[in-house]
């Protein structure tokens, strides 16, 4: 699965003229990448909106206002709202432990954090079915106690959390390792205790990296399809998230409606990306200052 891509562009990477490629090479390189990006990313995205409005704005808004679509949107947001904070707390805790302490099994922990990236989301979903499903290990017990996890909100949240949990930790570990423990030691020698050190020194130092990780995590949480599809049960208006709702509409040949809802998801993603770019811009402004 996609690893975390950090895009920290710095202006300083521009090479001096005398070792640069010729104009022709540069034009070719730039146009190839633009063309590729256009064909593979922009065109499909654009086609979503074209397809969505094909039968007119009325059909578009009707599809979005459809109670099933609204409930899917609500479920998606709710899932993200639970999974993202969970992973934020977990990610900070894991990154903290890994970068600031020496302990046995550290490498195992790092590998485990990467596991959701390495495993197919479908398998992630199946794992939960095996655990909590009617024929699963804990299924009968849960049934007896009338607790519903599969084909309900808890299952969806669990699957989403599983798939998105590396984002925050992966973003923070290198950052915190690079920062080291000196500022924290300084704070300790000045009398600050554990939590005071965290709130006043550690957190302010990692805040931009943390936000970045949270945003990536959120983007994935809202868009997750595979794992959620396995555990959700596809009950319309109840356990359908936006990606699942889109698939159902599409399979029913209501293309316009499906693309209308898809455009909703795209817009959520676009908002996320805008916030992400803003944060990158903010961090980039901070970085050169720190280097000086």
């Amino acid at each position: 699965m996609a690893g975390v891509v950090t895009t920290q562009l710095s202006e300083k990477t521009a090479r001096p003229k005398h070792i640069n490629e010729s104009l022709a090479v540069r034009i070719i390189l730039i146009s190839v990448s633009l063309l590729f990006l256009g064909c593979v990313v922009l065109l499909p995205l654009l086609s979503i909106f074209i397809e969505a409005f094909k039968k007119g704005a009325d059909v578009y808004f009707a599809a979005i206002r459809d109670p099933d679509a609204l409930s899917a949107l609500k479920l998606t947001l709710l899932t993200a709202l639970i999974a993202v904070p969970l992973n934020t707390v977990f990610g900070v805790a894991a990154a903290w432990a890994i970068s600031k302490f020496r302990f046995r099994g550290k490498n195992v922990l790092i590998t485990l954090i990467d596991l959701p990236f390495a495993v197919s989301p479908v398998i992630a979903g199946l794992v939960f079915i095996l655990l909590f499903g009617a024929q699963g290990f804990l299924g009968p017990w849960l049934d007896n106690h009338n607790i519903q996890i599969m084909f309900a909100l808890p299952g969806i949240v669990l699957a989403t959390t599983f798939v998105t949990f590396p984002f925050v930790a992966r973003e923070l570990i290198p950052l915190m390792q690079a920062q080291g423990v000196q500022e924290e030691e300084a704070a300790a020698s000045l009398g600050a205790k554990g939590w005071q050190i965290f709130w006043r020194v550690t957190l302010p130092n990692i805040k931009w990296g943390l936000l970045y990780g949270v945003i990536l995590c959120n983007a994935r949480a809202m868009g997750e399809f595979g794992a959620v599809s396995v555990v959700s049960g596809h009950i319309r208006g109840e356990t359908n998230t936006l990606p699942l709702h889109i698939e159902i509409l599409y399979n029913e040949y209501s293309f316009s409606a499906s693309f209308a809802v898809a455009s909703l998801l795209v817009m959520l993603a676009v908002v996320t990306l805008i916030v992400k770019s803003f944060i990158e811009w903010k961090t980039a402004r901070q970085l050169p200052k720190e280097e000086s």
């Binding site: 000196q182 030691e185 300084a186 704070a187 300790a188 020698s189 009398g191 006043r200 302010p204």
Partner: peptide
């Protein structure tokens, strides 16, 4: 260390 009443100046200063 918090209670020892010691001031520590670090090699790279470790300013916040």
């Amino acid at each position: 260390p918090q209670l020892r009443g010691i001031g520590f100046v670090f090699q790279n200063y470790a300013l916040f």
